[in-house]
Amino acid sequence: MLNFDYRRPESLDEALSLRKEWGGKSSLLMGGTDLFLAIEEEVRRPELLIDLKKIRALSGLEEKDGAVHIGAAVTYSELIHSDLVHQKLPGIWESSRLVASVGIRNSATMVGNICNAVPSAESATPLMIRDAVIHITSASGSRSVPAVEFFTGPRRTVVKDDEIVTSISVPLMKGKFGESYVKLGRYRGEDIAQVATAVLVDENWNYRIAYGAVGPVPMGIPGAEAVLKGKKPAADLIEKAKSEVLNTVSPIGDIRASKEYRLHMCAVMFEKAIDAAVSRMETGAPAYGARLI
């Protein structure tokens, strides 16, 4: 039977001291769109739910000191409706629109998404390619962890039992750049990604490439980045980079997709994602949010 207590602190300090006191017996609640079901299915059995939604300090969404800061309580709907995000973090904007549907996005947060840390988490790869930093606080201090180091295994992150993620900051790009986020779902309606590809390219032809749902954690593909580095992509380069992708990813087959199809789509989506990112940098088209597959 569900038997837990519930607190809704109004300040971060209060939340941190609850966290310190209750540690692993507490769960942090944001939109709850993951946690609720984990509790329902008895995967998690917290004794205390600490609801962070009403903490003002976590609700900020702003540009400051060369980065966009996304508070832990910011929902996907807020991200999607933000001009700042649309303009400065277009890949994150594009991926946020593909999370679930409106009724979920109105509650679901990006921080909840990455803290839940399933391999298919929508926000993992777009944050990784932008060198985002995750800010984590406990009663005894704060630390910042690059997104690439945040995920330690399926449903596991570096966040400790007395800690709270307070925000994510995404450094602004200098100069021209293009991004893309391509999601493989079984149809256009709501689905959990079976493969996710995120690509960033800048005007000096530096690339960042990351894949989700094709390994235990979302992963960057440094081999492919190296192949393409400094060059405008040509067919032979793409082929070489693609084989780097295929050598790096390690998808499993499950009821959502077979291993073979995931691998096949890793390659197909790679081309689409590179193509879109480059073309967006150079021409501004296709518009962010346009369907890429």
């Binding site: 256009r188 309606g189 709501e190 689905d191």
Partner: peptide
């Protein structure tokens, strides 16, 4: 049966 929910048993949405 492994897909006893709408996450993995897909029925068409308005987008289809």
């Amino acid at each position: 049966m492994l897909n006893t929910n709408f996450t993995d048993y897909k029925i068409p949405t308005i987008l289809e």
